[in-house]
Simulated scan of single mutants.
Amino acid sequence: MSRVRRGPWAAGMAGTPAAAMSDPSKPRLTTSAMIASLVSEGQRSSTAPFGHALVEAARNRPDIVGMTADLGKYTDLHIFGAEYPDRYYQMGMAEQNMMLAAAGMAHEGFVPFVTTYAVFASRRTYDFISQGIVEEGLNVKICCALPGLTTGYGPSHQATEDIAIFRGMPDLTIVDPCDALDIGQATHAIAAHQGPVYMRLLRGKVPLVLDEYDYRFELGRASLLRDGADVLVISSGLMTMRALEAAKLLETDRVSVAVLHSPTIKPLDEATIVREAGRGGRAVVVAENHSVIGGLGEAVAGALLRNGVAPPLFRQVALPDVFLDAGALPTLHDRYGISAEAMARSIKGWL
């Protein structure tokens, strides 16, 4: 049984009538809420970048193994499983057990890539990750789908506070890549990195945008994708894509927007952030697909405060500190202010 079906909300929220679920003679409808694509019409994309990158990374690395909690298909780890079936472990709906099994594998010299949904990793297995993996400094890579508001299934599956939960954990590297290029390169980088990593994933068809900006992922480094005189947007994850789109929208209003992509949340590239935020008297806006509490915005604010940098304006584009609604992603993104159009309206209103 797929994890999509677990819980009493499945029939109502997944768009699958209860009768179709219980009557095997009727076709089983697919749901758009769980696997909704972030690719807009006409946008370039790449399919399953994480799965394909992990296959490449594992080609000359027999120590790399894949482990999932009944979510191989929904985290693109099934691509790895098809290529290396003897190195693929289906652990069932038992995330806590899976994390400790990954710790055991790491103790034996393997490099487990563990996949589940971000809500399950952050809320359900925190103590097991902390004491079983990170405190021991084990080489486990925890790669999680459905970060922030990337599903319409409501609070049970929307990991709006995962970065806040994990940022306080010592010695855990946190990565929030933007697009297919970023995910592929980040997968190779964390495979080469020694130590525990938590990485957010976009799955399925993933937009491809950063190849237009001569971009290359570097663990622990932020990258200035475009410069601008009026506003500096510091962003991570899919919000970097939205920031680039909003910057183009704001050009028609003669607002010049710089975009600084920070795919590594921890350790944060404070040197680059402080330098760019202190240059030119620009407003600073932090954009993230995460709660306004405890994520990149507060990390950046703390870095600026510690380094004595006070921009003329500091604002956040982020999810509100509430349990979010269920529904269609485009509607929810506009409602909660993280669509490109909503972001452009906010920035224009703040200036």
Rank of each mutant, 00 (worst) to 15 (best):
L181W: 01
G281W: 06
L244G: 04
E298K: 10
M99T: 15
C143S: 13
Q131R: 08
Y88M: 08
M99C: 13
A53P: 12
Y336E: 03
G92M: 00
N97D: 12
G92Q: 12
G281F: 11
S236T: 08
E341A: 10
A277I: 15
T16D: 05
F217E: 02
T173R: 02
F217P: 05
R87F: 01
L244C: 04
V65W: 01
R306W: 05
T331F: 00
G92N: 15
I190N: 01
T125N: 11
Q43A: 09
A247H: 06
A192T: 11
L304T: 15
P112M: 00
D162W: 04
T115W: 00
N139E: 07
A277T: 14
S45G: 12
Q96P: 08
R279M: 04
A53V: 10
S22Y: 09
W350F: 11
A246K: 03
R5H: 14
Y213G: 05
G237Y: 01
D176P: 10
R226Y: 06
A318F: 02
V114F: 02
I142P: 06
V55R: 04
G132S: 13
N60A: 14
G327C: 13
M169Y: 11
D76P: 11
G104R: 12
L305Y: 12
N307Y: 04
D171R: 14
Y198M: 06
A106R: 05
P62T: 13
V134R: 01
H52P: 08
Y215T: 06
R203T: 11
G297A: 03
D176Q: 09
A103D: 15
V285Q: 01
F113C: 11
I265L: 08
E83T: 15
D182M: 03
V140N: 03
K348L: 13
A243G: 13
A164Y: 15
T125S: 13
S339K: 13
H107K: 13
L304F: 09
V111C: 08
P8G: 05
A222E: 11
A10K: 06
D76F: 02
D162R: 06
V114W: 02
W350E: 10
G294K: 03
E136I: 11
T30Y: 03
P320N: 14
I163F: 00
I174Q: 00
A318C: 15
G168R: 06
V55P: 10
L210H: 13
L332G: 08
R87D: 12
H157Y: 08
Y84Q: 02
V206T: 10
A121I: 03
C178L: 01
L296H: 15
K26Y: 07
L304H: 09
P207V: 07
T68H: 01
T30V: 09
A344Y: 06
Q316C: 10
A33F: 02
N139H: 12
V197K: 00
A277P: 14
D171S: 14
T150D: 04
Y84H: 07
R5C: 14
E341Q: 14
F80N: 01
A340V: 14
H290R: 15
P263E: 02
K205Y: 12
M67I: 09
A243Q: 06
R5L: 12
L210G: 06
A310R: 14
V259Q: 05
L201I: 09
H333C: 10
A192P: 10
Y89L: 00
A318E: 05
